[in-house]
Design a protein around this nucleic acid. Structure first.
Length: 371
DNA sequence: AATTCGGGGGC
DNA sequence: GCCCCAGAATT
C-alpha cells in the first residue's frame, strides 16, 4: 500500500471507528490495570461474554494491590465459567510481582511488562498501545483475518508461522498517531464487518483498499488449517454422601480446570463399567470405599481438545477415611453450599439434578417421619 | 512445531 | 455437529 493510500486508509477506518465504536466498560478509562484485566479476559473470549465478568472483577479487585492481596479462592470464584483458568492464576501472580517489584504501577517498559506471567505478544501490544500510546500493532484473530483479506495473504492464520507473518504487515499498516484507537479499530472491524463468514463488504471502511474484495475471494480467506476433531473421553464421577454431607474435591493447581472444585471421579478405562470406574477412581483419589446407590445423570461437555461424556452416580461410603492422592483439598459440605465454590461448567450441568435428588430424599424422609 | 488450556454463540 | 473467539504457556 502506498503512503498516500495508507493515509486514506487510516482516515477511513478511524473515521468509521469514531462513529461506530461500541461502548465497553474498559473503554473510556485510562487505567492501565483495567485495560490489562480486560485484555486478559478477552483472549479467546467474546466481548459480550467478558463484560459482566469484567465489571464484577474490577469491583472486587480494583487495583493491582487489591488483586495481589486477595485470596486465590476468591479470584478463581470470580473467574468461574470464563474458562482458561490459568489466566486468573497468572494475572494474580503478575499483580503480586507488580506490587513487589514495581510499587503497584503497571510497568510502561515493554520488555518488563512482557515478562509478567500471562502477558504474551498480543497483550503487551494491546495494553502498550491503548494504555500508554506505544506505537505497536496488536495482532489477534480479528486482525489476522482482516489483513489476510486486505492484502490477500494465504498464510494459514492458525498455523505456526501466523504471528510473524501477520505482525509485519500489521505494524506497517499501524497508524502511529493513534495506535491504541487503531488497534481497537482493526479488531472492531474484524468483529463487526470483516467477519469470518459473510463479511459485510458493502459497509466496510476498508473496502476500497481490500485486494480480496477486488478479486472476489473474501469467502476463501483467511486460509485455515484443519484440526482433527477431538476424541470422546468417558468419565465417571460420584456424589459421595455421608450423613447429610457431600464430598467435593479440589483439582491440582495446574492443568485442566486447575484449582477448581468438583465431584471426585475420573476416566473410565477400556472395558470398564462406568459404575466400576466411579468406585475405583474414588478409592484411588480419596481412599474411600464407596458403593453406588443410583445412577443420577449422563451429560456431555465439549472441551477444546476432547469431549467428556460423564456418568454421575450417587454413592454411599462403605469404609475408609479421606486421604488425598490426586486432589489438593477436600470438603464435606452441605449440598446446597456447592455454589460457593468455583465449579467447572461440566459439573454445573448435573448439580441441579443432584440438588433435586436431595430434595426428594428429604421429602421422603419427612413423609416417613410424619407417619 | 505441536499441544494444552473453557465455554459459549452462530449456523 | 463444526467453527470461532481482542492468546499464552508448555513440551
Amino acid at each position: 500500500m502506498t503512503p498516500v493510500a495508507k493515509k486514506r486508509f487510516h482516515a477511513s477506518l478511524l473515521g468509521w471507528f469514531d462513529a461506530h465504536r461500541r461502548s465497553m466498560p474498559w473503554r473510556d478509562t485510562a487505567d492501565p490495570f483495567a485495560i490489562w484485566v480486560s485484555e486478559v479476559m478477552l483472549q479467546q473470549t467474546r466481548v459480550e461474554a467478558v463484560i459482566p465478568y469484567f465489571l464484577r472483577f474490577m469491583a472486587a479487585f480494583p487495583t493491582p494491590a487489591a488483586l495481589a492481596r486477595a485470596d486465590s479462592f476468591d479470584v478463581l470464584k470470580q473467574w468461574e465459567g470464563l474458562g482458561y483458568y490459568a489466566r486468573a492464576r497468572n494475572l494474580q501472580k503478575a499483580a503480586r510481582r507488580v506490587m513487589d517489584e514495581w510499587g503497584g504501577e503497571v510497568p510502561v517498559d515493554r520488555a518488563i511488562f512482557r515478562s509478567l506471567p500471562g502477558v504474551g505478544p498480543y497483550i503487551e501490544a494491546a495494553v502498550g498501545s491503548i494504555a500508554f500510546g506505544v506505537p505497536v500493532a496488536a495482532v489477534d484473530g480479528n486482525v489476522k483475518r482482516v489483513i489476510a483479506r486486505l492484502l490477500k495473504m494465504e498464510v494459514p492464520v492458525n498455523g505456526p508461522r501466523a504471528h510473524a507473518a501477520f505482525a509485519a504487515p500489521a505494524d506497517d499498516l499501524l497508524c502511529r498517531a493513534r495506535p491504541g484507537d487503531w488497534n481497537q479499530a482493526m479488531m472492531e472491524l474484524g468483529a463487526r464487518i470483516c467477519t469470518p463468514r459473510h463479511p459485510d463488504c458493502g459497509r466496510c471502511p476498508a473496502a476500497a483498499f481490500c485486494i480480496a474484495r477486488k478479486e472476489s475471494c473474501t469467502d476463501r480467506l483467511p486460509v485455515r488449517l484443519r484440526k482433527k476433531r477431538p476424541p470422546v473421553r468417558r468419565v465417571a464421577v460420584g456424589a459421595v454422601i455421608r450423613g447429610n454431607r457431600l464430598l467435593i474435591c479440589r483439582r491440582p493447581e495446574t492443568g485442566l480446570l486447575g484449582g477448581l472444585w468438583e465431584l471426585p471421579g475420573g476416566t473410565i478405562e477400556k472395558g470398564e463399567l462406568a459404575s466400576g470406574a466411579c468406585v475405583r477412581e474414588i478409592r484411588e483419589e480419596v481412599n474411600l470405599r464407596v458403593e453406588p446407590v443410583c445412577h443420577l445423570a449422563s451429560v456431555r461437555h465439549a472441551y477444546t481438545h476432547f469431549t467428556a461424556a460423564i456418568d454421575v452416580f450417587v454413592c454411599r461410603v462403605v469404609s475408609g477415611r479421606v486421604r488425598l492422592r490426586g486432589p489438593t483439598d477436600f470438603a464435606w459440605i452441605q449440598p446446597s453450599r456447592w455454589v460457593q465454590y468455583p465449579f467447572p461448567g461440566a459439573n454445573r450441568l448435573f448439580m441441579p439434578t443432584l440438588m433435586a435428588y436431595f430434595e426428594t430424599q428429604n421429602t421422603k424422609q419427612n413423609d416417613y417421619q410424619r407417619r
